[in-house]
Amino acid sequence: MAKSWMEWEKPLLELERGISELREKQKLLPPDKAAAMEAQIQQFEQTRDNYIRVKYGRLGPWERVLVARADNRPYTLDYIRNIVTDWVELHGDRRHGDDKAIIGGVGKIGNRSCVIVGHQKGRDLKERKFRNFGMAKPEGYRKAIRLFDMADRFGLPVVSFIDTPAADPNLESEQRGISEAIAAGMFKMFSLGVPTVAVVIGEGGSGGAIGIGASSRVLMLENAIYSVIPPEGCAAILWRDAAAGDKAAAALRLTAQSALELGLIDEIVPEAFGGAHRGPKETAENVEKAILGRFDELDRMSPDEIREDRYRKYRNMGVQIEAPIGGRSG
Protein backbone atom coordinates (compact mmCIF):
# COMPACT_ATOMS: atom_id res chain seq x y z
CA MET A 1 0.00 0.00 0.00
CA ALA A 2 1.23 3.45 -0.89
CA LYS A 3 1.78 5.65 2.14
CA SER A 4 1.78 8.80 0.10
CA TRP A 5 0.41 9.99 -3.15
CA MET A 6 3.94 10.94 -4.17
CA GLU A 7 4.99 7.30 -4.27
CA TRP A 8 3.21 6.75 -7.51
CA GLU A 9 3.22 10.33 -8.74
CA LYS A 10 7.00 10.69 -8.59
CA PRO A 11 7.92 8.55 -11.59
CA LEU A 12 5.08 10.14 -13.46
CA LEU A 13 6.22 13.65 -12.65
CA GLU A 14 9.75 12.77 -13.76
CA LEU A 15 8.43 11.38 -16.99
CA GLU A 16 6.34 14.49 -17.58
CA ARG A 17 9.30 16.72 -16.83
CA GLY A 18 11.44 14.75 -19.28
CA ILE A 19 8.79 15.05 -21.97
CA SER A 20 8.49 18.79 -21.63
CA GLU A 21 12.27 19.16 -21.69
CA LEU A 22 12.41 17.17 -24.92
CA ARG A 23 9.65 19.34 -26.36
CA GLU A 24 11.70 22.43 -25.56
CA LYS A 25 14.78 20.93 -27.18
CA GLN A 26 12.77 19.89 -30.20
CA LYS A 27 11.74 23.49 -30.84
CA LEU A 28 15.38 24.47 -31.36
CA LEU A 29 16.13 21.70 -33.85
CA PRO A 30 15.97 21.95 -37.65
CA PRO A 31 12.76 20.43 -39.07
CA ASP A 32 14.21 17.09 -40.15
CA LYS A 33 15.81 16.39 -36.78
CA ALA A 34 12.73 17.59 -34.96
CA ALA A 35 10.62 15.13 -36.90
CA ALA A 36 12.97 12.32 -35.95
CA MET A 37 12.67 13.30 -32.32
CA GLU A 38 8.88 13.34 -32.50
CA ALA A 39 8.62 9.58 -32.61
CA GLN A 40 10.72 9.27 -29.47
CA ILE A 41 8.68 11.87 -27.62
CA GLN A 42 5.45 10.24 -28.64
CA GLN A 43 6.68 6.99 -27.25
CA PHE A 44 7.37 8.63 -23.91
CA GLU A 45 3.94 10.20 -23.98
CA GLN A 46 2.41 6.84 -24.60
CA THR A 47 4.31 5.41 -21.66
CA ARG A 48 3.01 8.30 -19.56
CA ASP A 49 -0.57 7.73 -20.67
CA ASN A 50 -0.34 4.03 -20.00
CA TYR A 51 1.04 4.67 -16.56
CA ILE A 52 -1.81 7.08 -15.80
CA ARG A 53 -4.36 4.68 -17.18
CA VAL A 54 -3.09 1.88 -14.98
CA LYS A 55 -2.61 3.97 -11.85
CA TYR A 56 -5.62 6.25 -12.04
CA GLY A 57 -7.87 3.80 -13.83
CA ARG A 58 -8.83 2.01 -10.68
CA LEU A 59 -7.67 3.77 -7.56
CA GLY A 60 -8.56 2.06 -4.31
CA PRO A 61 -10.30 3.95 -1.49
CA TRP A 62 -7.06 4.73 0.33
CA GLU A 63 -5.38 5.94 -2.86
CA ARG A 64 -8.29 8.25 -3.45
CA VAL A 65 -7.82 9.62 0.05
CA LEU A 66 -4.25 10.45 -0.93
CA VAL A 67 -5.28 12.03 -4.24
CA ALA A 68 -8.08 14.01 -2.58
CA ARG A 69 -5.50 15.42 -0.17
CA ALA A 70 -2.71 15.92 -2.71
CA ASP A 71 -1.03 19.24 -2.21
CA ASN A 72 -1.26 20.22 -5.86
CA ARG A 73 -4.94 19.43 -6.20
CA PRO A 74 -7.03 22.43 -7.28
CA TYR A 75 -8.72 24.22 -4.39
CA THR A 76 -11.87 26.31 -4.21
CA LEU A 77 -10.19 29.52 -5.39
CA ASP A 78 -8.76 27.64 -8.40
CA TYR A 79 -12.29 26.68 -9.42
CA ILE A 80 -13.45 30.22 -8.88
CA ARG A 81 -10.58 31.52 -11.02
CA ASN A 82 -11.43 29.06 -13.78
CA ILE A 83 -15.22 29.21 -13.96
CA VAL A 84 -16.44 32.29 -12.08
CA THR A 85 -16.55 35.76 -13.59
CA ASP A 86 -17.12 39.15 -11.93
CA TRP A 87 -16.15 37.60 -8.61
CA VAL A 88 -16.47 39.74 -5.50
CA GLU A 89 -15.24 38.09 -2.31
CA LEU A 90 -17.15 39.00 0.84
CA HIS A 91 -15.72 38.78 4.31
CA GLY A 92 -16.66 38.44 7.94
CA ASP A 93 -19.44 36.99 10.04
CA ARG A 94 -20.33 40.39 11.60
CA ARG A 95 -19.93 38.79 15.00
CA HIS A 96 -16.39 37.77 15.64
CA GLY A 97 -14.13 37.84 12.61
CA ASP A 98 -13.35 36.63 9.12
CA ASP A 99 -12.51 32.97 8.79
CA LYS A 100 -9.87 32.23 6.17
CA ALA A 101 -10.72 28.54 5.87
CA ILE A 102 -14.18 29.25 4.45
CA ILE A 103 -14.33 31.86 1.74
CA GLY A 104 -17.45 33.30 0.20
CA GLY A 105 -18.72 35.84 -2.26
CA VAL A 106 -20.80 36.53 -5.33
CA GLY A 107 -19.94 35.85 -8.94
CA LYS A 108 -21.24 34.45 -12.18
CA ILE A 109 -21.14 30.83 -13.26
CA GLY A 110 -22.18 30.66 -16.89
CA ASN A 111 -24.58 33.55 -17.08
CA ARG A 112 -25.92 33.15 -13.57
CA SER A 113 -25.03 35.32 -10.65
CA CYS A 114 -24.78 33.15 -7.57
CA VAL A 115 -23.53 33.07 -4.03
CA ILE A 116 -20.46 30.87 -3.69
CA VAL A 117 -18.93 29.56 -0.50
CA GLY A 118 -16.16 27.03 -0.08
CA HIS A 119 -13.43 25.69 2.14
CA GLN A 120 -10.03 26.99 1.18
CA LYS A 121 -6.76 25.17 1.77
CA GLY A 122 -3.30 26.69 1.34
CA ARG A 123 -0.62 25.59 -1.05
CA ASP A 124 2.63 26.34 0.75
CA LEU A 125 3.33 26.24 4.47
CA LYS A 126 2.67 29.94 4.98
CA GLU A 127 -0.58 29.83 3.06
CA ARG A 128 -1.62 26.63 4.74
CA LYS A 129 -1.26 28.26 8.13
CA PHE A 130 -3.14 31.33 6.88
CA ARG A 131 -5.98 29.07 5.75
CA ASN A 132 -5.73 27.00 8.93
CA PHE A 133 -5.34 23.88 6.75
CA GLY A 134 -8.88 24.33 5.48
CA MET A 135 -10.29 23.81 8.99
CA ALA A 136 -12.99 26.38 9.64
CA LYS A 137 -13.92 27.90 12.97
CA PRO A 138 -17.43 28.97 13.95
CA GLU A 139 -17.04 32.33 12.20
CA GLY A 140 -16.53 30.51 8.90
CA TYR A 141 -19.91 28.80 9.15
CA ARG A 142 -21.50 32.02 10.37
CA LYS A 143 -20.11 33.93 7.40
CA ALA A 144 -21.57 31.25 5.14
CA ILE A 145 -24.93 31.56 6.91
CA ARG A 146 -24.87 35.31 6.29
CA LEU A 147 -24.28 34.71 2.60
CA PHE A 148 -26.94 31.97 2.40
CA ASP A 149 -29.40 34.46 3.81
CA MET A 150 -28.40 37.00 1.20
CA ALA A 151 -28.80 34.45 -1.57
CA ASP A 152 -32.31 33.64 -0.40
CA ARG A 153 -33.38 37.27 -0.21
CA PHE A 154 -31.94 38.16 -3.61
CA GLY A 155 -33.07 34.96 -5.31
CA LEU A 156 -29.56 33.75 -6.12
CA PRO A 157 -28.61 30.09 -6.28
CA VAL A 158 -25.90 28.87 -3.91
CA VAL A 159 -22.82 26.84 -4.78
CA SER A 160 -20.72 25.24 -2.01
CA PHE A 161 -17.27 23.87 -2.71
CA ILE A 162 -16.43 21.25 -0.08
CA ASP A 163 -12.79 20.61 0.75
CA THR A 164 -11.89 20.27 4.41
CA PRO A 165 -10.23 17.64 6.59
CA ALA A 166 -12.58 18.67 9.44
CA ALA A 167 -13.82 21.74 11.28
CA ASP A 168 -11.23 23.15 13.67
CA PRO A 169 -11.68 21.34 17.00
CA ASN A 170 -9.51 23.63 19.11
CA LEU A 171 -10.25 25.57 22.29
CA GLU A 172 -11.35 28.76 20.53
CA SER A 173 -13.72 26.81 18.33
CA GLU A 174 -15.32 25.22 21.36
CA GLN A 175 -15.56 28.56 23.14
CA ARG A 176 -17.39 30.11 20.22
CA GLY A 177 -19.61 27.10 19.61
CA ILE A 178 -18.30 25.17 16.62
CA SER A 179 -21.00 22.52 17.01
CA GLU A 180 -23.78 25.10 17.06
CA ALA A 181 -22.23 26.86 14.05
CA ILE A 182 -22.22 23.67 11.98
CA ALA A 183 -25.76 22.78 13.04
CA ALA A 184 -26.89 26.32 12.27
CA GLY A 185 -25.33 26.08 8.81
CA MET A 186 -27.48 23.07 7.94
CA PHE A 187 -30.48 24.62 9.67
CA LYS A 188 -30.16 27.71 7.48
CA MET A 189 -29.62 25.70 4.30
CA PHE A 190 -32.89 23.84 4.88
CA SER A 191 -34.76 27.14 4.90
CA LEU A 192 -33.53 28.34 1.51
CA GLY A 193 -36.00 28.70 -1.35
CA VAL A 194 -33.24 28.96 -3.93
CA PRO A 195 -31.34 26.13 -5.68
CA THR A 196 -28.32 24.97 -3.70
CA VAL A 197 -25.60 22.80 -5.21
CA ALA A 198 -22.59 21.39 -3.35
CA VAL A 199 -19.51 20.02 -5.07
CA VAL A 200 -17.09 17.92 -3.04
CA ILE A 201 -13.81 18.79 -4.78
CA GLY A 202 -11.34 17.19 -2.36
CA GLU A 203 -11.95 16.11 1.21
CA GLY A 204 -15.49 16.01 2.52
CA GLY A 205 -14.52 15.95 6.18
CA SER A 206 -17.58 15.05 8.31
CA GLY A 207 -19.37 17.84 10.17
CA GLY A 208 -16.98 20.42 8.80
CA ALA A 209 -18.20 19.52 5.31
CA ILE A 210 -21.93 19.06 5.87
CA GLY A 211 -22.11 22.42 7.69
CA ILE A 212 -22.08 24.12 4.28
CA GLY A 213 -23.04 21.06 2.24
CA ALA A 214 -26.69 20.24 3.02
CA SER A 215 -27.61 21.25 -0.52
CA SER A 216 -30.41 20.41 -2.96
CA ARG A 217 -27.93 18.52 -5.10
CA VAL A 218 -24.55 17.13 -4.11
CA LEU A 219 -21.88 16.36 -6.68
CA MET A 220 -18.51 14.75 -6.12
CA LEU A 221 -15.37 14.82 -8.20
CA GLU A 222 -14.34 11.32 -9.14
CA ASN A 223 -11.35 11.25 -6.79
CA ALA A 224 -12.92 13.23 -3.96
CA ILE A 225 -13.80 11.56 -0.67
CA TYR A 226 -16.69 12.12 1.73
CA SER A 227 -16.57 10.58 5.17
CA VAL A 228 -18.11 10.65 8.62
CA ILE A 229 -14.61 10.53 10.15
CA PRO A 230 -11.06 10.67 8.78
CA PRO A 231 -9.96 7.08 8.08
CA GLU A 232 -6.96 7.44 10.40
CA GLY A 233 -9.23 8.61 13.22
CA CYS A 234 -11.59 5.72 12.60
CA ALA A 235 -8.70 3.24 12.67
CA ALA A 236 -7.32 4.77 15.86
CA ILE A 237 -10.67 4.41 17.62
CA LEU A 238 -11.65 0.98 16.34
CA TRP A 239 -8.34 -0.79 16.09
CA ARG A 240 -6.04 1.52 18.11
CA ASP A 241 -3.91 1.84 15.02
CA ALA A 242 -3.92 5.13 13.12
CA ALA A 243 -1.70 3.50 10.51
CA ALA A 244 -4.57 1.26 9.46
CA GLY A 245 -6.10 4.16 7.54
CA ASP A 246 -6.27 2.08 4.37
CA LYS A 247 -8.38 -0.58 6.06
CA ALA A 248 -10.69 2.07 7.51
CA ALA A 249 -10.92 3.90 4.17
CA ALA A 250 -12.23 0.72 2.56
CA ALA A 251 -14.66 0.00 5.40
CA LEU A 252 -16.02 3.55 5.48
CA ARG A 253 -16.93 3.47 1.79
CA LEU A 254 -15.82 7.06 1.39
CA THR A 255 -15.37 7.21 -2.38
CA ALA A 256 -17.63 9.04 -4.83
CA GLN A 257 -18.65 5.73 -6.35
CA SER A 258 -19.80 4.38 -2.97
CA ALA A 259 -21.63 7.58 -2.10
CA LEU A 260 -23.49 7.38 -5.41
CA GLU A 261 -24.35 3.72 -4.87
CA LEU A 262 -25.71 4.53 -1.43
CA GLY A 263 -27.86 7.25 -3.00
CA LEU A 264 -26.21 9.97 -0.92
CA ILE A 265 -24.90 12.05 -3.81
CA ASP A 266 -26.45 12.88 -7.16
CA GLU A 267 -23.59 12.79 -9.61
CA ILE A 268 -19.91 12.04 -10.06
CA VAL A 269 -18.06 14.72 -11.98
CA PRO A 270 -15.16 13.36 -14.05
CA GLU A 271 -11.69 14.76 -13.51
CA ALA A 272 -9.08 15.41 -16.16
CA PHE A 273 -7.05 12.41 -17.32
CA GLY A 274 -4.66 11.59 -14.48
CA GLY A 275 -6.54 13.58 -11.84
CA ALA A 276 -7.77 17.13 -11.31
CA HIS A 277 -4.24 18.31 -10.54
CA ARG A 278 -3.14 17.26 -14.03
CA GLY A 279 -5.89 19.28 -15.71
CA PRO A 280 -7.36 21.90 -13.37
CA LYS A 281 -8.98 23.81 -16.20
CA GLU A 282 -10.62 20.85 -17.83
CA THR A 283 -11.82 19.59 -14.45
CA ALA A 284 -13.23 23.02 -13.62
CA GLU A 285 -15.10 23.05 -16.92
CA ASN A 286 -16.65 19.69 -16.05
CA VAL A 287 -17.66 21.11 -12.68
CA GLU A 288 -19.17 24.17 -14.33
CA LYS A 289 -21.19 22.08 -16.74
CA ALA A 290 -22.49 19.89 -13.91
CA ILE A 291 -23.46 22.89 -11.75
CA LEU A 292 -25.30 24.59 -14.61
CA GLY A 293 -27.12 21.36 -15.37
CA ARG A 294 -28.34 21.21 -11.78
CA PHE A 295 -29.40 24.87 -11.85
CA ASP A 296 -31.49 24.07 -14.94
CA GLU A 297 -33.12 21.18 -13.14
CA LEU A 298 -33.87 23.15 -9.96
CA ASP A 299 -34.94 26.32 -11.76
CA ARG A 300 -38.18 24.61 -12.70
CA MET A 301 -39.25 24.52 -9.06
CA SER A 302 -40.88 27.24 -6.97
CA PRO A 303 -39.20 28.20 -3.68
CA ASP A 304 -41.64 26.00 -1.76
CA GLU A 305 -41.00 23.10 -4.10
CA ILE A 306 -37.27 23.57 -3.70
CA ARG A 307 -37.60 23.41 0.09
CA GLU A 308 -39.85 20.37 -0.07
CA ASP A 309 -37.59 18.61 -2.58
CA ARG A 310 -34.60 19.21 -0.34
CA TYR A 311 -36.43 18.01 2.76
CA ARG A 312 -37.52 14.82 1.01
CA LYS A 313 -34.03 14.18 -0.28
CA TYR A 314 -32.46 14.17 3.19
CA ARG A 315 -35.55 12.72 4.86
CA ASN A 316 -35.09 9.57 2.82
CA MET A 317 -31.43 9.06 3.69
CA GLY A 318 -30.87 6.12 5.98
CA VAL A 319 -31.12 2.37 5.82
CA GLN A 320 -33.07 0.55 8.50
CA ILE A 321 -35.25 -2.48 8.91
CA GLU A 322 -38.75 -2.09 10.27
CA ALA A 323 -41.07 -4.70 11.60
CA PRO A 324 -43.95 -5.30 9.21
CA ILE A 325 -46.70 -4.47 11.71
CA GLY A 326 -46.99 -1.86 14.39
CA GLY A 327 -43.59 -0.34 13.81
CA ARG A 328 -44.72 3.06 12.63
CA SER A 329 -46.63 5.62 14.62
CA GLY A 330 -50.17 6.45 13.57
Binding site: S206, Y226, V228, I229, L238, L252, L254, L264, Y311
Partner: peptide, 26 residues
Protein backbone atom coordinates in the same frame (compact mmCIF):
# COMPACT_ATOMS: atom_id res chain seq x y z
CA UNK B 1 -21.59 11.28 18.06
CA UNK B 2 -22.28 9.87 14.61
CA UNK B 3 -21.83 6.11 14.20
CA UNK B 4 -18.70 5.31 12.19
CA UNK B 5 -19.99 1.89 11.21
CA UNK B 6 -22.59 3.40 8.87
CA UNK B 7 -20.14 5.78 7.23
CA UNK B 8 -21.58 8.62 5.20
CA UNK B 9 -25.11 7.43 6.01
CA UNK B 10 -24.45 8.49 9.60
CA UNK B 11 -23.12 11.87 8.55
CA UNK B 12 -26.30 12.38 6.56
CA UNK B 13 -28.35 11.75 9.70
CA UNK B 14 -26.93 15.06 10.92
CA UNK B 15 -28.48 16.75 7.89
CA UNK B 16 -31.70 14.77 8.13
CA UNK B 17 -32.31 15.56 11.81
CA UNK B 18 -31.36 19.20 11.23
CA UNK B 19 -33.92 19.36 8.42
CA UNK B 20 -36.55 18.05 10.84
CA UNK B 21 -35.49 20.70 13.39
CA UNK B 22 -36.02 23.33 10.70
CA UNK B 23 -39.49 21.99 10.01
CA UNK B 24 -40.40 22.06 13.70
CA UNK B 25 -39.01 25.58 13.99
CA UNK B 26 -41.01 26.81 10.99
Amino acid sequence: GARMQEGLLSLMQMAKTSAACRKAYD
